[in-house]
Design a protein around this nucleic acid. Structure first.
Lengths: 232, 232
DNA sequence: TCCAATTATTGACATTTATCAAGCGAGCGC
DNA sequence: GCGCTCGCTTGATAAATGTCAATAATTGGA
C-alpha cells in the first residue's frame, strides 16, 4: 500500500481512533487494487477473507436466490463493506461487483479481527459502524414492506434531491435497471412508475431528473426520517 | 432488581464477559416490570431511554407508516432489543408491544453507554450482538425481495420444523395475522397460501402444523442457509 | 462514423397480491 | 348456556406488479 492510500483509509471514522501502531500493523498486510467494471469481487456464501474499502468508483452489493437477483445497496467512496461478516468470521450474505472502474483497499479479515481484539478504540468504532449499517437495513426493510413501488420511487427521488442540496434538476447517479432492482421492481415497472409521477412534477430525461414542484411530490411520498433520513 | 433477575440477565452472551463491578453498576439502575398483553412498550421515533431485555413472554417489533403497519420481528426470552438505538443514542426505528403477558428488564440507555465506554469486553460483546442483528435483517430483506409470499411461507414452515427438531407435527407459535404481517402479506393471502401448500403435504389446523412430506416442501421452498439459517 | 450490444420504453397480457364483504367458529364473559 | 367479539376463511373483484415481445434510444467500441 502506498502512503497516499494509507492516509485516505486513515480518514475513515472506523480507523480514526486507532493507535498508530495498530493501524500500521493492520494496513501492512493490506493491498490496493484497481478493478475494471462488472467484476465480481465477492460471492455470497464464501468465507470473508478481506474487509473491503472503496476508495474510487462504485460497487453494488446484491443477492441471488433461485435464479433471481436483487440489488441491496450501492457502496461509494469512502466506505467499507461486509464488516459484519469479517468481524463474525462468517460467510458473506451478499455478493459484490464493481459498477464502474473502481479502486479498493483490501485488508485481511484476520488482521481486522486481530486489531479488533487489541485496539479498544477500533472495537468501539466498529460498533458505531455496525449500528449504522443495522439501522440502514432496517429502514430499507420498512421502505419495502410499507410502501408501494411508486411511493418508494417518489421517496428515492426526494432523498436524491436533498442530497443535491435541493436543486431543481440533478443527475440520477444510477442506471435505471439497477435502481429498479434496488427499489424492488422490474425495469418495466420503473418506467411506468416514472410516468406515474409526471402529474406530481417529476420529469426524468435519460439520467436528468427534474422536480418542478417538490411540495406536490412530498405530499405523495410522505417521507419520514425514520425511513428516509440516512443519518437519523 | 431481584438477584434472580440479575442472575438471569447475566447469562446473556452480551453481559457474560463483563466485569462484576461494571455489571453491578449497570444493573443497579435497572428494573424489572411485568406487562399485560398488547402494551406498547416503545414507540418508533422516541428517544431510546432503555435497553430492553425480555425474560418472559414475547414482544413484537413493528413499524408503521402512513396508516400501514408491518411486523418486523418477534422477540422471545432471553433476548435484548433496540440495542443499536441505545448505543447510538438515536431514536427507535421500530415500536414494540407485548404479545402476551411479559416480563422485561429495563436498563437505562445512559448506563449501557457508560458500560460500553468503560468495559472492553462488553463493547466487544455488543459488536457480536449487533453483527448478528445486522445479518438477520439482511437475510430478512433477501427473503422479502427474492421470494414470493408462498415461498416465504414454505420456508418459514421448514424453519419452524427444524426448530421443533424435525417433528412431523408442531405448534405454530404465532397468530396467523401476525405471521402474515411478518411475511409481508395480508391475513387473507396467508389463508390462501396455506391452501396452496396442501399439494406439498402441508396441513394447518388451527395452530397445529403438519408436514407429511418434508422433501416435497423443500423442493418448492429451496431453503438457503444464506437466508434461512439463523446462526449462519 | 457506424455497427453491435445493451438499456430503456411501450403495449398486451398474466400473475400476484390486496381489498371488500360475508360467513364461520373458537374463546370468553355474563 | 348464550351471545359477543375477534380472528380466520372464502369468494368476488380490483389493483399492483411481473412477463413477454417488439421497438426505440443509448452507449461503447471497431
Amino acid at each position: 500500500m502506498r502512503t497516499t492510500d494509507i492516509a485516505e483509509v486513515r480518514k475513515l471514522p472506523l480507523f480514526r481512533g486507532m493507535s498508530d501502531d495498530n493501524f500500521e500493523t493492520l494496513t501492512r498486510g493490506g493491498y490496493v487494487q484497481t478493478f475494471p467494471p462488472q467484476v465480481e469481487l465477492i460471492t455470497e456464501g464464501d468465507p470473508s477473507d478481506f474487509l473491503h474499502i472503496v476508495t474510487d468508483g462504485s460497487v453494488e452489493l446484491f443477492a441471488a436466490w433461485n435464479g433471481r437477483e436483487t440489488m441491496m445497496a450501492t457502496v461509494r467512496p469512502l466506505s467499507t463493506f461486509i464488516l459484519a461478516a469479517t468481524i463474525k468470521d462468517a460467510p458473506y450474505l451478499m455478493s459484490a461487483r464493481t459498477i464502474e472502474k473502481s479502486r479498493l483497499v483490501l485488508l485481511p479479515s484476520l488482521d481486522v479481527r486481530d486489531a479488533f481484539n487489541i485496539d479498544n478504540n477500533f472495537a468501539r468504532a466498529v460498533v458505531t459502524e455496525l449500528a449504522q449499517c443495522y439501522r440502514s437495513v432496517v429502514k430499507n426493510s420498512k421502505n419495502i414492506k410499507l410502501r408501494t413501488s411508486i411511493e418508494r420511487l417518489a421517496n428515492y427521488l426526494i432523498r436524491q434531491r436533498t442530497y443535491n442540496d435541493g436543486a431543481e434538476e440533478f443527475e440520477l447517479r444510477i442506471e435505471k435497471r439497477r435502481l429498479a432492482s434496488y427499489l424492488g421492481m422490474t425495469p418495466e415497472n420503473l418506467s411506468r412508475a416514472i410516468k406515474a409521477l409526471r402529474p406530481y412534477g417529476v420529469t426524468i430525461n435519460g439520467s436528468q431528473v427534474r422536480i418542478s414542484d417538490p411540495q406536490d411530490l412530498v405530499s405523495l411520498a410522505k417521507p419520514s426520517p425514520l425511513i428516509d433520513d440516512p443519518s437519523h
